[in-house]
Computed example of a mutant assay.
Amino acid sequence: MRGRVLIVAGSDSGGGAGIQADIKTVTALNGYAMTAVTALTAQNTQGVFGIHEVPVDFIRQQMQLVLQDIGADCIKTGMLHRPAVIEAVCAELDSLAKDVPLVVDPVMVSQSGHRLLDPTAMDVLKRDLILRATVLTPNVPEAELLTGMTIRDTDDMHHAGQMLLTLGPQAVLMKGGHMPGDTVTDLLVTQTGTHVMSASRIDNNSNHGTGCTLASALACGLAQGLDMQKAVERARAYLREALRTAPGFGKGSGPLNHAHPCGKGTADFSKIPD
């Protein structure tokens, strides 16, 4: 086991997204996952039906205790739903060494369309959190909300990524899964250039938690010492196989197969002594 990842995000009772997906992803990639829960959600594959907020002081306490004792090689943020939560998380991030990478997944809307970011939090997200990011991982709708532009093609994705760089992150991973077509193209945009990654679309309805999963896989790679491009490429490969082998659970947008690297078949415990 290598690479300590602290995930600051919301819980998904259906297990497909949020910290549940994050923990599964980091563990499957041989990292060590820790969490600071920002909110509890009541949801399944068909939607989000309730949100229970975690007190801000308790979010900070979770982060403080984990970081003081275990430490972290990378931080990943997900659902930070209101201004006070973002401000509290940023205050704790300031206590970290400057070389600890930060992956910011700007979670705004659930797969089912439920808004997960208070509209009043947008300015705080851009001003305080994105500024600190090693890499920002928006999908197309999130990038449109952050930039105010309409994204119709990969040229627009590239332009949006460059606009987002002006907010302060070292890199922007523009995810193209929401764009139409048989090919999915992602762009890793940095100050030194843009790396284009394309692959055929895996067309199924088991796509709940893809953003959480990709960001956590990326965070795990950075925690394990991979450079940015290799961490992104491994994360994309992990996500593609999780999509391809998804179990088909639920009546709506189903979960991925996060456990696919863990081998096939069932372990034989019969020979383990008492």
Rank of each mutant, 00 (worst) to 15 (best):
L136V: 12
T185A: 07
G148L: 10
N30P: 03
K98W: 15
C212M: 03
L125K: 04
A267F: 14
A33S: 03
V140W: 07
D123L: 13
M179G: 02
G209Y: 01
D22P: 06
A223E: 05
A223I: 02
R60E: 15
D12K: 00
G16F: 00
L96G: 05
V140C: 13
A160H: 09
D73M: 05
M1P: 11
D69C: 10
G3V: 01
L214H: 06
L136P: 12
A215S: 15
R152D: 13
A259N: 04
A88P: 03
D186G: 11
G15D: 02
I151Q: 08
Q64E: 15
E241L: 09
K230I: 14
T77W: 08
R60I: 04
L164Y: 12
L164K: 03
G16V: 00
R60C: 13
H158G: 14
G14C: 06
V124F: 10
L80Q: 08
Q170L: 09
G47L: 01
F49S: 10
M179S: 06
R127S: 15
L187R: 01
K271P: 13
I130E: 09
V104Y: 05
G15V: 00
Q61D: 13
R201F: 06
T194I: 00
H114K: 13
T190E: 07
D57Y: 13
Q43P: 07
V85K: 03
T190C: 04
Y238G: 01
T154V: 14
E92C: 04
Q111T: 14
S112I: 02
L218I: 11
G193D: 05
L243K: 01
G18A: 04
I272H: 05
V124N: 12
I59V: 15
I75W: 08
T38G: 12
P169S: 11
I202Q: 08
N139I: 06
T166R: 11
